[in-house]
Design a protein around this nucleic acid. Sequence first.
RNA 1: CGGAGAGUAGCUCAGCCUGGUAGAGCACCACGUUCGGGACGUGGGGGCCGGAGGUUCAAAUCCUCUCUCUCCGACCA
Length: 519
Amino acid sequence: MQRALSAHRMTGERSNFPDWYQAVVREADMAEPSPVRGSMIIKPWGYGVWEQIQKELDRRIKDTGHDNCYFPLFIPLSFIAKEAQHVEGFAKEMAVVTHHRLKMLDGKLQPDPDAKLEEPLVVRPTSETIIGDAFSRWIKSHRDLPLLINQWANIVRWEMRTRLFLRTSEFLWQEGHTAHADEADAMAETLRMLEVYRDFSETTLAMPVIAGEKSENERFPGAVNTYSIEAMMQDGKALQAGTSHYLGTHFSQAQNIRFQNEAGEHVWCHTTSWGVSTRLIGGVIMTHGDDDGLRLPPAIAPRQIVIVPMLRGKPEDGDVLGYCQALASALAKETAFNERIRVIVDTKDIKSADKRWNWVRRGAPLILEVGPRDVAGGNVTYMRRDQLRDGDKVRSTAALREQFVAEAAQLLTAIQTRLYGEAKTRLDSNIRSDIASFDALADYFGVAGDDDEAGDFKGWVRAPWSSPAGAELEAVEKKLKQLKLSIRNAPLGQSAAPLGKCIFTGAPAVQEVLIARAY
RNA sequence: CGGAGAGUAGCUCAGCCUGGUAGAGCACCACGUUCGGGACGUGGGGGCCGGAGGUUCAAAUCCUCUCUCUCCGACCA
């Protein structure tokens, strides 16, 4: 399939972005479809990326005062039913366990009719209700607040259409759940975690995002406010990369989560929840991948430096291998991104050229080739994955071994910076704010059905918005839907400058919103 | 669940219209020449042609039913 990726390079563009994406996922050894419909097998290289994401994000979650817990996979049906909007939002995509035993009946193994559960259990689509139930028992006093909990878990949502990493029936995520004494504290938490996500995404994933508030119709079922970070993929579409919700007292009222304040009164808690998932990996692929495959930001690369010995089945092979091992040991003592550099010598018994390109496809940031000439000269020859094809041909650089070891961390940082810079430029230069009417919006994005043209890049539009509600909002929604567009969010930190008129309603605008096609 | 398309080797697909012993490229295995810019030669392994029925001397090919997948809608981290 190197062929398909090469073919893409020949066209000079992501002419068929979905095909390109699937090719990269497979060729980079990230994941594959499983025998279970809509579920994926995350392969070692892909899971390694997830582990790096977990490690860094877990550190940040703990640094902001949260503790990890684990709550059950199975949630009693009655729990889900407690919050009306919550039920409505998730009812259509729930996996339900109804039996606890199998039996041979009519020659077929099937659920035993005599082993029916008294109350069906749903496989968690999210844990607000089961965690809320615990909170209602754990919280008695204002001294118990804030209660700051996180869990790393798998989630099941029975989606109609699935795509590896971007939307799978089962996915891995982290979900934070917190309870607070008042709205101000809960809102501060909601925004604090949104900021953690924004910074993590930009710093660690090198994926620039725009943080903002979701419109009413895009809110999490049961939330008062929902905030998101939105990233721009290389086809111009938006990817919701993380969400943070202020839940008000909806769940605490539904589940009796309350405390006694200093005055001795019983008061509802204000709760929040926030999460990011393995979808982030899809975002990284669609942000940084190129026609040679994946490019991984060094901060999350399972192996940041790969040493490929140039072996030829000759006596000097031993010297080359020894040199490589010594080099690896020296590099592993260095520090990058506050951790020891992750380095490996690829000793697999295949051709060096194949090894090199395998690592290129997987997106290893630095690929070293070490042959007899390097051994003789005390050198290393390396390729930076991020600038593999700067210029006409594949580029490699020679350096003295000691110098390379000393500068390896800087190189990794430089790669991280460049990947972020490229993505940041793409994001910044593809948001238009000169669209003044709905007709202009329609012209820019093209009418529905027109947009399937391959390689038809459309960025985002930032437009004035009067924040309509009710029927008026529904009408706007309908118009947007015809163009396959959606309001991604209202970016935070907007200036107080005059905004003019809403491009949908003509009424005075109260803020600006981002409009885009989305995953 | 609606609309369209597709199921043949690990991958991408040809063969089907007009029935007659299962094909190509890549990948894989062996040997040799190569190897520091995605090598080449020779030989080889691998398929219940998605499944079930039917028509026929004979079915990947024709007919019926069924299952699955992909894309487009609806739904979504």
